[in-house]
C-alpha cells in the first residue's frame, strides 16, 4: 500500500469481545491519505475491527500500532451510526457538533466556552450544516444528522476519520451528496478515512482501498484489485 510509515498497522492481531475471537491473524496496514471502505457481510467483524481501532476494545492478541504526526497516535474523528444517539437529549445541532471540540478542553477553556465557537462553526460550514445549528438535533432528517455528526468529528481536528455506515437509511440523492462531501473533506483536509459500509455500489468511486472482513479474516488491497477477486464480487453482485 504505497510508501512511508503506515498510519494504522495491525500486527498478527486477533480481535473480538471477551474470549470470543471475531477476526484472527489480522496483519494489515493502512497508509496515510487512503480512503478505505471496510466491507463484509453482516456479523463479519467490521464493527469489531472499527471499535478496536478506536480504542474501545483491546486486541485479544498481537498489536495495533497507530503512527500519526511525530510518531504520536493520530487524532481520531468518529462518526457513529446516527441511530446510536438517544433523541431524548435536548441538544441542538450546534451542541452536538461542539462535542468534537471537547478534546481542547482544559480548566481555563471550561470557563470560556465561546473560544470553541469559531472551530465548531467552521466544521458545520464545511459540512453545509450552518443553517441547522440552532435546530434540535432530534428533529433533523437522517442526512442532516449525518452532516452534523461529520461536523462534530471535524471539530475534533482529526487526522483519521472513522465512519460507521454513514449512508445507511438515507435516500440515494442524499447519499450522493454525502459522498461528495466526504470526498471534498478528505482532499481539503488531507484526512485518512475508514468507512464501514454494507454496500459498495454507490461508494465504489470513493474508496482507494477496500478492507474486506469475511470468514474470520481481514484483508486489504486497492479497490479495483479487491473487486476483481471472486469473493468480494460474489458478496456484492446482487446489490441493488
Amino acid at each position: 500500500m504505497g510508501t512511508g510509515e503506515p498510519l494504522i498497522r495491525f500486527k498478527h492481531a486477533a480481535i473480538g469481545y471477551g474470549r470470543k475471537v471475531v477476526l484472527s491473524g489480522v496483519d494489515l496496514a493502512v497508509e496515510r491519505d487512503a480512503f478505505v471502505g471496510v466491507l463484509g457481510p453482516n456479523g463479519s467483524g467490521k464493527t469489531t475491527l472499527m471499535r478496536t481501532l478506536l480504542g474501545l476494545i483491546p486486541c485479544l492478541k498481537g498489536q495495533l500500532v497507530l503512527s500519526g504526526a511525530g510518531g504520536r497516535p493520530p487524532r481520531l474523528g468518529y462518526v457513529p451510526q446516527k441511530e446510536r444517539l438517544d433523541p431524548i437529549f435536548p441538544l441542538s445541532a450546534y451542541d452536538v457538533a461542539s462535542m468534537g471540540a471537547y478534546r481542547r478542553f482544559d480548566l481555563m477553556r471550561r470557563l470560556r466556552r465561546e473560544d470553541d465557537r469559531p472551530l465548531v462553526e467552521r466544521a458545520l460550514a464545511a459540512c453545509g450544516a450552518s443553517a441547522l445549528a440552532a435546530r434540535a438535533y432530534g428533529d433533523l432528517s437522517g442526512g442532516q444528522k449525518q452532516r452534523v455528526l461529520i461536523a462534530r468529528a471535524l471539530a475534533s481536528e482529526p487526522q483519521l476519520l472513522v465512519l460507521d455506515e454513514p449512508l445507511a437509511g438515507i435516500d440515494v440523492s442524499t447519499q450522493k451528496a454525502l459522498i461528495e462531501l466526504l470526498r471534498k473533506l478528505k482532499v481539503e483536509r488531507g484526512l485518512t478515512v475508514l468507512m464501514v459500509s454494507h454496500r459498495i455500489h454507490v461508494e465504489r468511486g470513493l474508496f482507494t482501498h477496500v478492507l474486506l472482513c469475511d470468514e474470520g479474516e481481514a484483508t486489504i488491497g486497492p479497490t479495483e484489485e479487491m473487486l476483481s477477486g471472486g469473493r468480494l464480487r460474489a458478496l456484492f453482485e446482487n446489490e441493488p
Partner: peptide, 22 residues
C-alpha cells in the same frame, strides 16, 4: 456545572468520549 461537558459526553456518546481521550 463545572464538569457538565464531561458528564454530558459520557452520558450521550461513550464511544466518542473514548476517542477524545476521556
Amino acid at each position: 456545572f463545572l464538569f457538565q461537558r464531561e458528564f454530558l459526553l459520557v452520558s450521550y456518546d461513550r464511544d466518542m468520549a473514548v476517542t477524545l481521550g476521556r
